[in-house]
């Protein structure tokens, strides 16, 4: 188990990167998000989780099974949960510094994230910001893709300024009928690391839940001849973790 976990961890970078998780309705990429929250907290990195998809208790229950308690870091101001489902905390009703309007969802959320970064960042460890998920943020922005992209761009500037890590999840299949899905293309251009979760090409299997593709841009191999690294695994999601293995390596 430990060896298979390191297979995924080896494929992922450490600091100051933008990670895009692309999933589809047959294979949810939520398990990667949980894995990354746990990994950041174990590395003693402050985490901000912006949740459009689920409540705190949902993430807390899953992370407990993974061996990570969210309540403790939250009490220690090492974990900030931005609940976008809570009507009392809906962005746009929060009374921003300049009385932001309902249509200014991106700016209000960015303001909240900046405050959280200032409150939890330390000199030693930079902050990790995770967004679950962008398709629901697009809904919250009343379908305005430009608002979502503006928000992402400003969060991306935090990578350059504060060495933050930025993880965002989106569903690629909802744009499959579009010839030029501007949001997905923008995300793919922006991401340093692309994680794509897809069903097996050969159909479903009992002991393999799907395949995971990792495209790591800006990496040199041993010979220094490659700019991007491409890896493909099969995975199995268990109650207490993920098992990753190369295709054909399991009898």
């Amino acid at each position: 188990m430990a060896g298979s976990r390191s297979l995924l961890d080896e494929a992922l970078p450490t600091l100051g990167k933008a990670l895009l998780i692309e999933d589809c309705v047959e294979t949810s990429g939520g398990f990667l998000l949980h894995h990354l929250v746990k990994r950041f907290l174990l590395c003693d990195r402050p985490v901000i989780l912006v949740a459009f998809a689920n409540t705190f208790s949902h993430y807390d229950r899953i992370l407990r099974k993974l061996g990570c308690n969210l309540a403790a870091p939250r009490d220690k101001n090492r974990f900030v949960f931005v609940d976008m489902l809570d009507p009392q905390l809906q962005v746009g009703n929060s009374g921003g510094t300049d009385g932001s309007a309902d249509g200014d969802v991106g700016f209000s959320l960015y303001e909240r994230i900046c405050k959280a970064v200032r409150s939890i960042s330390t000199e030693k460890n930079s902050v990790a910001i995770l967004v679950d998920d962008l398709s629901l943020m697009e809904v919250a922005c009343k379908g305005s893709v430009d608002d979502v992209i503006d928000f992402l761009h400003h969060c991306h500037t935090l990578i350059a300024e504060s060495d933050c890590s930025f993880v965002f999840l989106n569903h690629h299949d909802i744009y499959s009928s579009m010839e030029r899905p501007s949001l997905m293309l923008y995300l793919e251009y922006m991401a340093d690391v692309l994680l794509r979760v897809e069903p097996l090409a050969t159909g479903s299997a009992v002991d393999v839940h799907g395949q995971l593709t990792v495209l790591n841009r800006g990496v040199h191999d041993v010979a220094g001849t490659s700019r991007s690294k491409f890896q493909n695994f099969h995975y199995r999601v268990k109650e207490n973790g993920i098992e990753c293995f190369y295709p054909g390596s399991r009898g």
């Binding site: 794509r196 897809e198 593709t213 495209l215 001849t225 490659s226 700019r227 991007s228 491409f230 493909n232």
Partner: peptide
């Protein structure tokens, strides 16, 4: 589009 087939078959295209 950046599909799995495109990604998997184009190691040459990454360099």
């Amino acid at each position: 589009r950046l599909t799995l087939d495109n990604l998997a078959g184009t190691d040459e295209n990454m360099r």
